[in-house]
Amino acid sequence: MSKENKIIYGIYGDEEVLLSAVKEARERHYDIQDVYSPFPVHGLDPLLGLAESRLHIAGFVFGAIGTLTAFLGMTWIFTKDWPIIFGGKPYWSVPAFIPITFELTVLFASIGMVVSFYVVSGLGPGVKSKLLDRRLTDDKFCISFENSENSDYEEFFRSTGAEEVGVA
């Protein structure tokens, strides 16, 4: 691994210290590679400038596919493929199709969103995670930068209250 691909990171003991450090890094126009935390830290996304997640759009699209699959499927089956009269009702009895249409909407939206989440996040069974520190899923918070040759980073971590600084 060349030196340019190395990562320098600072470990913080509290999310409030982390938030002010992220703020400081943004003010200094540092390019933050990533921030790791053991739980979702509120107020972090706007500081990092993360765009809002588009997962809910995926959810809507998958849900709409579910709606159409169920409704058009039942319509085709009961009007074209094998029409049967049940209890003297019309072949195309829309109110009776609503429950299954609703269930499949929810089913498609949920499965679609969950699969999208894991795919776009690069997570899944068998994915080997390269953790910077094992305590990052316990009680520590971390900011990482690419290219450790920039000596400003060490000074930045020390001045913003990092407990430890490491290179990986």
Binding site: D34, Y36, S37, P40, H56, S110, M113, G122, G124, V127
Partner: peptide, 20 residues
């Protein structure tokens, strides 16, 4: 699933939880 606790992952995770 190789979870790391990255900020972007947490953001998506919360969004997913809310929509689910």
């Amino acid at each position: 699933f190789g979870w790391k606790g990255s900020a972007k992952h947490w953001q998506r995770w919360e969004s997913l939880s809310l929509v689910l």
